Amino acid sequence: MNQRTARRSLVVAAAIAALAYLQPARARAGDAEACFTASEEGQRLRDDGHLRDARARFIACGAVACPALVRSDCAGWLSDVTARVPTLILSAQDEQGQDVADVQVTLDGAPLAARLDGKAVEVDPGEHVLRFERAGSAPVALRLVVREGEKLRRVSARLARPATARAGATTPGGGPIAPREDQAASPPASSLLLPIALGGVAAAGGVAYAALGLSARADADRLRTTCAPRCAEADVDAVRTKVIAANVAFGVGVAALGGAVAALLLRDSMPAAPAAAAVHVVPLPGGAAAALGARF
């Protein structure tokens, strides 16, 4: 090998060595850039409420190949986002109230669960529409608002067979009838208005009964010690009126209390329409009778 050939061999070896050194550096630079990109995307997705996608980005930028500073930040963000991701436990029952598992569920039109297995599923916070579908049953849509950090929230749907009379039915415009949409919330708060109102009536009746009864007793004692048995008829009538009023208040309070208890026991089955209640008082000789009427 002459001197010229030896020099050329040295140049080629140096070039190969330089490429071998620069290639890992380029790879490291590319990995670092991907880490920074994942970090930025994760923060943006988190702020927009897309917590599940944000968590995937934070997992990526927390990899060992990422710079230590980025890994540290992403690890903290990952822990925070994981705690904030809501979870739901989905279930469905047939017409007899029996649990069914062969149900498909979509979230805002996207697949969420191919089968109900009792395990919690993760969703992003916000307003969503869950659609439950099962062969032979009418689909059910539930509209609900999911909150950040809400864990193991139970959402259940009651599936029923489509009514024969509605098979092939259409809207006045000619389109198919949309599936029924239920609410995933608890019984409406309006169902508590009746028991609360009746409870207030019962409390007021009790207060009135106590006040009138004590006043009537005080007046009667005063008459016994001052003028009995020759007291003025007007004074006696005044005491008698207070006694009657106390009895009326007592009857109203008892009736209202009973109605409040009944309304609380039945509120789960009460419709959302407002309920109306009325207390009827009928004066009787020596007292009064009270009747409670309610329309559910």
Score class of each variant (00 low, 15 high):
D221C: 03
Y21C: 08
D31C: 04
A178V: 13
P24L: 03
S156C: 01
L116R: 06
R161V: 11
V248H: 12
R240P: 00
R71I: 05
A34D: 12
I89C: 05
R52N: 02
P162W: 02
V207R: 14
H280C: 07
A185E: 15
A13T: 10
D108H: 08
R134V: 01
V282I: 10
L22Q: 06
Q93H: 13
A289L: 15
L212K: 08
T170I: 15
A263H: 09
T82M: 06
E233F: 11
A291M: 12
P187T: 08
L194S: 07
A32N: 10
R134M: 09
R147W: 00
A210K: 11
F58W: 05
S190Y: 05
F250H: 12
R4L: 12
G126I: 05
K119Y: 04
P111W: 00
A92T: 03
A256S: 12
A60S: 13
L88Q: 06
A157W: 03
K119V: 09
E40P: 00
A256T: 01
Q98R: 14
S72Q: 14
A289C: 02
D94G: 08
L116F: 04
Y21K: 06
S72K: 09
A273Y: 04
V252D: 09
T171A: 08
I177A: 07
D47L: 08
A169K: 00
D235Q: 15
V129E: 10
G109Y: 05
L284N: 07
P176N: 09
A277E: 10
A14L: 10
V282M: 12
K151E: 04
F250C: 06
A169T: 05
G109Q: 01
I177N: 07
E33D: 11
D48N: 08
L193I: 14
Q3K: 12
P111I: 04
P176L: 13
A14M: 11
R180Q: 12
A15E: 10
A208F: 02
V155C: 00
A218M: 06
V243H: 08
V248L: 15
A277V: 12
D99T: 09
V281R: 08
A260F: 01
E40H: 05
A32E: 15
P285C: 00
G49W: 03
A56S: 14
R4N: 11
A294V: 15
R55D: 04
R222W: 09
A63W: 01
T87E: 10
R44L: 03
V81D: 00
T37P: 00
D47H: 03
V121N: 03
G97W: 04
F132C: 06
P125D: 07
R28D: 13
A232Q: 12
D94P: 08
L152S: 05
L19D: 09
L194Y: 03
A15D: 03
L152H: 11
E95S: 13
E33Q: 11
A262R: 13
W77S: 07
D124Q: 01
P125G: 07
E127Q: 13
L144V: 00
T37M: 07
A294W: 06
A13W: 04
A113K: 11
G42M: 02
G173W: 06
S190L: 13
K242Q: 14
Q96P: 02
R44S: 01
